[in-house]
Design a protein around this nucleic acid. Structure first.
Lengths: 142, 142
DNA sequence: ATATAATTGCGAATAGTTTGCAAGTAATTC
DNA sequence: GAATTACTTGCAAACTATTCGCAATTATAT
């Protein structure tokens, strides 16, 4: 799977390139699933440490400049994912039992027909779809 | 628009019928938009007062027994709506500027084709779609 | 009417997130 | 390469939404 380069991406978006930002953004780029602030904060490997408040500030900044999108909220926690060309918009499935998140295939043009009504109401620039249920594993284990 | 009767609904779901529950449920039934705990707490008219913690407990209970569904989360706040026959599942549009929420038309059978992939992953029992953008009003005002 | 079990109010706790401010650091200019 | 400037960061405290324990209250079954 192709991934973005953190430094290039930051530079491209005209935000200052700092050690901390690269470290956090690298984590997000490397993750196959949406991430939250606390995981990112804990997930820092090795010597570098980034304050949790700073992580939150980064997440907000990254969303503002279009590096990230908010994937979904789970139980009052915000999850984010890359908003780059390598990660087109898609729905998420969450198992209510094991809480596991699965990213579904990118939304297709046909899918967006679903939103024709909404496009009459306004200009859509964010689509958020979350499906909840019981995954196969949990179903067979039950 | 047809609406449920709070007392009947509570009885039907086998949960105890109390003054407080009726008051809160009545508010939700009467609302044309998803509601949150604090609005419900503030929205109590007249003499009856229900503790905020109790409102949260009710919301959780009502979701558990299937009276309510979680409509969406906005900025860390949960919004709920009736899950009865009068209010079939539907997507929500939110204007990022004026924050107004608009309920879209009920999801159709065709819409659910979108979820065929997910149904291979597990049994879906909750669908959550939120669209964000700028509504016509805000666009013309800008 | 009484008994029983569930519900509620209250206060305090918790979790996630935001903010102010002083100190630190990246990028710019000389 | 050092000085300047504006942006970033750490820290501690504030804030918001939500949850919890416990004692007092209340709905239903007897």
């Amino acid at each position: 799977m192709d991934r973005c380069n953190a430094t290039e991406l930051l530079r491209l978006k005209n935000v200052k390139v700092t050690r901390s930002r690269i470290a956090i953004l690298d984590e997000i780029i490397a993750s196959d699933n949406p991430v939250n602030a606390i995981d990112l904060h804990n997930g820092l490997s090795g010597q570098l440490t980034v304050n949790l408040a700073t992580v939150y500030r980064m997440l907000k900044l990254f969303v503002d400049v279009g590096i990230l999108r908010e994937a979904f909220a789970d139980n009052g926690t915000q999850y984010f994912e890359m908003a780059c060309v390598h990660n087109p918009a898609h729905a998420h499935f969450q198992c209510s039992k094991c809480k596991r998140i699965i990213c579904l295939s990118p939304l297709t043009f046909e899918d967006t027909i679903l939103f024709s009504e909404a496009s009459k109401i306004g200009e859509i620039n964010e689509i958020n779809i979350k499906l909840k249920g019981i995954c196969q594993k949990c179903r067979s284990t039950a």
